[in-house]
Each structure stands twice: as structure tokens, then as C-alpha cells.
Nucleic acid binder design. Structure first.
Lengths: 310, 310
DNA sequence: GATGTTCTCTGACTAAAATCAGAGAATGCC
DNA sequence: GGCATTCTCTGATTTTAGTCAGAGAACATC
């Protein structure tokens, strides 16, 4: 398997990667082109550009200065926070970006050109699979403070989504609490899932010694669904609970969250009578956490995962 | 489709390409590491290194000097041609290369690490497909002089293979001739298939005005089989024949060349009685070349291609 | 309103990559 | 033998990329 990955890597970087770089070079250093591209039609915060392109702040600043000097972009302070600066394409910049776009399209088309239609479809299908799975593999789950910026951002997105999806509306302050101090070691734990530096999911657990641990605040950004992040997060929380003495995990949720419910079922949870009085919840689940039992996250039996796409 | 290729390209270069570069950097500039790697266990001609890595001769020379200075390689003239120089790894160089190897393995493993076993297999399978099809798409067929170096090289490989595979043995000078002047426009044509600069297949055609064109010397290197090169070469030769007035194509071959025969059948050839007295041949084929009929090279009906893998 | 943090920028560098022109040796081919 | 070609090397330089330290503005918090 490792050999296949390596040989794939060789072929692809040569044929797709390196060539693409050449195509992007249009009388302009590659890094500048990439920056131009990344700024996008809508403009972009500089700190985001830096993190996406993986650039040092000095380097990034110089690249922006160069593009600005050519009249391709303007950089101006963001309204919300005047420390943050926004880069935006000028008309000339938009034009340049369009050219880059066309070049990339040509390059992509040239890759497909050597193939007959059926093989072309096969290739594109396999590319889709590789892309999805590589993205999934790049997700990283980290223990963070539940009051940290990324955590807070995830939680507000979570609350907003619950509010949007359930008829009753959701109030994080009503019902069972999950305050930061309850989700911080040693009382509990809070994890954030990152994809290329961006927080795209979260989950918390409240420890209760030998009594059932409570799994709370599980959420995955819409843009990152279908990558198995939820499953990994759940496994992570369970491991954490088990390591802290729990032999059972408890989750409650609302019936409108069908993906969540199907995940719980497929991960071995069974529905049980209400074990608390969370007003938002109408389904309660429980799972025995066999000590040291490794959840490989493998595909569950078909009948259990049917709800998934419903 | 183009969009999918582009998005694939972004994800893969980031996750597989760029990271791999980081891993390769081992107190040594990336270009040096790549060179070290590319030299391989057996050593390699410098001009080959240059073409594979796409380096300027000055740049390449300097990289080699640096590696030589560290005692990792020795560079010595090739025996065959003393203008050409060979780079070969020393013991220390072999050791370094092994370390690079291990790093690459680690990197490949780290890509797989984030996935559960079933997804892992899915990823590796899709990678295999992408790799194969990208390689196939990179093959380029060019009209060349049948006396050119690449053509001659292909032809000798072809003769050698015929000799090896058939019991009778093969003599290119016996039987129907296909001398360079017969395969050169306007009398005929000769094509070579290239993969990353290397000649990996060939094929010729002898025009006879309105009379059936003769397809000759079709060969594909073993390393390049399964990529559809033969099919593309055949289509190319047929187009060429049609453009020169032929309405029928003739091919004769030997029964031991099963892949060839199955290719001809799946491409629309039908077996006919001997139309010449080529001593090497024991099967004769014919195909009507409908004018302007495009051979898309799409997958033939299953029952006809069954011989393919026999 | 004092303090610490976040974000961006500049200056001063270093390292690596890439380019160009020209020279010299070996070879192939009349 | 003369001549063009191939292959490699060196010197001189330029362009990119990337790093580090520190400064200043805006903001968050107590």
C-alpha cells in the first residue's frame, strides 16, 4: 500500500502538480500567482491567505506589496477589525486571475485530452475518490480549551444550526449545562477537528468518574460532511471518556438531526429511555465502552447506516 | 470534468506533493535530494537525470558537484560514449538514499494513517486507477523518420521480442519488406509513441494508393502495456492510411502474439485468407476503413476482448 | 487606562533555484 | 582530416523563496 501511495505521488506530482505550476507562471513568480488566485473574486483577509498558503508574514507582505505595485490588488483594513487587512482584486487583477483560470482549465483539459471518453470518466471518478479520501485523511482532531477562539466559533455555529433545524429553537443556556469549566480537564474535555488549519468540527465530553460520561456539543461543518469526521470525533470522545474511567457513554439529541442519530446507531449506541430532562432532546442513547476496545470506525452493517443519507 | 481535475490537482499537490518535498529535505536542498534519489541504485546517465528532473545543464552540474563534494556520488565517463557521464552512488550515497526512502515511506504511511482500513483500501485502489490513466494520458504519438534513433531502437526491441516469442524465429530481412524508405512519406509513415520522453512503442504503414494499406512493425514496450498505447497507435496508423486514400487496412501476424490478435479483433479487424507470403505470419487480418469514421477507442464488447489477458 | 495580544509591516539576511554565455572534449559523418 | 553535433562543465548573475527580529497600530480585558 505504501508503495502504491508513493508511486501515485511520483506520477501525479509530475504530471499534475509540477506542470500546473508551470502553467501558473505567467511572467510572474509562482508565489505571486498563487496569492493572486487565492485572493479570489470576493477578496480575502490577509491572515487567511497566509494560513492557506503557508507563508511567513514577512514573505506574504512582500508578495502583496508586489501585486499592489503592479496595480493588481488593493489592500485595505477590514471594517470589523482594523488590525486585519483585506486584499481585493482590482479590475486588472481580475483580468489576470481570469487568465490564470483559463490556463488552468487548458492544463486540466490537456490531461484529459489523451484519453477516450470512457477512460476519461473513469479517471475523473477515481480522482473524485482520491480527493475526498485525502481530504478526510487530512483532518486532525486536537484537544483544545473550550473557551478558545476556534472552540467558541464552532460552538456558535453549532447553536445556530440547531436553532435553524429544529422547530422548537435551541437555547444553550436552558437544559443540561456544558460550560467551559465542565469541558476542561479534569472535569471533561473538548476537541476541535481541523482541516488545513480551519476548525470544521467539535465535540465535548463531561466525565463523571465511573458513572456514564456525557457526550456533548458534537458538530461538523456542512462543508466537511461525508468525510467521516463525526465518526472520528465520536471515537475520540469515547476513548477520552474510557481513559477517564467511564464504562458507558450517554448522548441525547433531537429527532431532526437524522445524520447524528444514524451515526450514533451505527457506532453501537442504542436508544434508551430519557436519562435526563434536557428540553431540546427527544432521543437518548447509550453505549457500553468496553475497556481497550478499539473502534476502527469501519463501515457499519448496511441496514444500520441507511438513515445516513435520508 | 475540468473542474474535477483542477480540484483534484489542488488537493493532491498540497497534501501529497508539497508535503513530500518537506519530507525529502534532510539538511539538504530539495533539488539535491531529488537528484540523489533519481540516480538510483544502478547509477544513471547525467543527460537522463537532466531530462527527467527538467534541469538546466548548469544547474544539474552544480548539484552533482555538490553531491560529489559530500562524497555521496561519483561521476565518471560512460564506457560507450565518453562524452556522456554516469553518476553512481557511493556507499555513503546509498545510505543517504535509503534514509530518503524511509522518509518517503513514512510520509506515505502518514497519509494513510488518518483513514480506517476500508477507506484506506478504497483510496489506494483509486490511486492506482488515477496513476494508470494519467500515465496513459501522457503518452504521445509522433510521426518520426523510420531511420531516427528512437525508431531504430524500437524496431530492434520489436525484432528481439518476435525472436524471443515465436518458435520459428524472426528475420526482418526475410518476407515482406518494410525498409525505411517504404515507411517514409509519401510512400508510408512511421510513428513512435513517447512516454515522458522515452520511446515506448512504434508502428508503420505502407501506402498503396487505393489498394489496401499495410500496417507493419506495431510494437509496445512491455513496461507500457495495459495503457491502451497499442490501440491508439493502431487508430493513428489507420487514420494515416485513410488520409492517404486507403479504404482497407491489412495486417498479418503470428499466432503467438495473442495480445496483438485480440487488439486487432476488438478494433474491428476480421481474419481473412493469407493475402501475402510473409513466412513469419500465420494469421491475416483486414479492416474496412470507413472514410471519416472516428475510432473513439472505446471499450469493445466484452466477448471480443476476452483474449486480452490470456 | 494600563496591559497583553493580534495582526501587519519593514529591514536585513541567507539559501536555493534558475539562467545565460561560452569553452572544451568526444563523437559521427562526410 | 575537417566540420558539425552532443554532452558536460565553469563563471557570473539574477530571481525567488524563505527567515528572523522588531516596531507600530488596533483591539480585548481587567
Amino acid at each position: 500500500m505504501v508503495d502504491q501511495v508513493r508511486s501515485f505521488s511520483r506520477v501525479v506530482t509530475q504530471r499534475v502538480g509540477a506542470l500546473n505550476d508551470r502553467f501558473m507562471e505567467r511572467d510572474r513568480p509562482l508565489a505571486q500567482s498563487r496569492m493572486l488566485w487565492e485572493i479570489g473574486l470576493e477578496g480575502c483577509e490577509i491572515r487567511l491567505l497566509r494560513s492557506r498558503l503557508g507563508l511567513d508574514s514577512g514573505h506574504a507582505s512582500r508578495l502583496l506589496r508586489a501585486l499592489e505595485g503592479e496595480g493588481l490588488i488593493v489592500v485595505e483594513p477590514s471594517m470589523a477589525d482594523r488590525r486585519v487587512r483585506m486584499a481585493r482584486l482590482t479590475v486588472a487583477g481580475l483580468h489576470e486571475r481570469t487568465l490564470l483560470d483559463e490556463r488552468s482549465d487548458e492544463h486540466a483539459a490537456s490531461i484529459l485530452a489523451g484519453l477516450d471518453p470512457p477512460r476519461r470518466e473513469q479517471l475523473v471518478g477515481a480522482m473524485r475518490t482520491v480527493e475526498r479520501l485525502l481530504t478526510a485523511a487530512a483532518v486532525e482532531i486536537r484537544l483544545v480549551d473550550p473557551a478558545s477562539r476556534d472552540a467558541v466559533r464552532c460552538l456558535s455555529a453549532y447553536y445556530a444550526e440547531l436553532n435553524r433545524r429544529s422547530e422548537k429553537g435551541y437555547d444553550p443556556n436552558a437544559g443540561i449545562s456544558a460550560e467551559p469549566h465542565e469541558l476542561r480537564p479534569p472535569a471533561g474535555a473538548f476537541f476541535v477537528a481541523y482541516l488545513r488549519g480551519e476548525a470544521i468540527g467539535c465535540g465535548g465530553v463531561k466525565h463523571h468518574g465511573g458513572a456514564p460520561a456525557e457526550i456533548k456539543r458534537m458538530w461538523v461543518a456542512e462543508s466537511a460532511r461525508g468525510l467521516g469526521v463525526g465518526r472520528r470525533m465520536l471515537a475520540c470522545l469515547e476513548t477520552c471518556a474510557r481513559d477517564n474511567g467511564a464504562v458507558t457513554a450517554h448522548i441525547e439529541t433531537n429527532g431532526t438531526l437524522v445524520e447524528a442519530i444514524s451515526l450514533y446507531l451505527s457506532a453501537g449506541y442504542v436508544e434508551v429511555p430519557a436519562f435526563n430532562d434536557e428540553p431540546f432532546a427527544d432521543h437518548w442513547f447509550e453505549k457500553p465502552l468496553g475497556p481497550y476496545k478499539l473502534d476502527t470506525g469501519s463501515t457499519p452493517p448496511r441496514h444500520k447506516s441507511r438513515l445516513r443519507r435520508a
